[in-house]
Amino acid sequence: MLDTKGYPNRLGLRGWVGGGRWGLERYLYTLHRLTGLGLLVYFLLHIIVTSARAFGAAAWDASMARVTGPVFVAGEYLVFAAFVFHAANGVRLALVELGWAIGRPIEPVYPYRTSVDEQRPLAVGVLIVAALLAVVGGLDFFVLH
């Protein structure tokens, strides 16, 4: 047995974010986490704010008056954009994590082709779909209104 004390070397939260020279899926993982947390915070507040409708028109209007203005519009757009990304990436993750978009095990022959390469078109598709929906949402939020 070792009689020395090892030096702790976990990357910590830095290891979650990766950054710099990691792969696309690492960034999607980070963004999925951030958008999920953002959506959850908004959702918990949203439950409370919109419960005013139970008390009638006056209470509702008073409640909505507290959350109007350009800052709230921009914030709601961020929530919309976070949702479209989280939803599109969530569909990818459901497919991948249930083993449907990663291909079958193969004999590893160099240069190795992994499941990450198999699902890469899906990951790119997530970015395209999320970007398109975010643009459509932006049109409705900022142009048509």
């Binding site: 709601e76 919309f80 949702f83 939803a87 969530g90 569909v91 459901a94 994590e97 249930l98 459509v136 949402g137 049109l139 409705d140 939020f141 048509l144 209104h145």
Partner: peptide, 24 residues
């Protein structure tokens, strides 16, 4: 968690479409 995510996908997409894509 995955099953709930799929339910949220459908119901929240409808909610978002009603609330935020109203002009379109």
């Amino acid at each position: 968690h995955v099953a709930a995510g799929l339910v949220v996908l459908v119901t929240l997409a409808l909610h978002m479409a009603i609330m935020h894509l109203d002009a379109l």
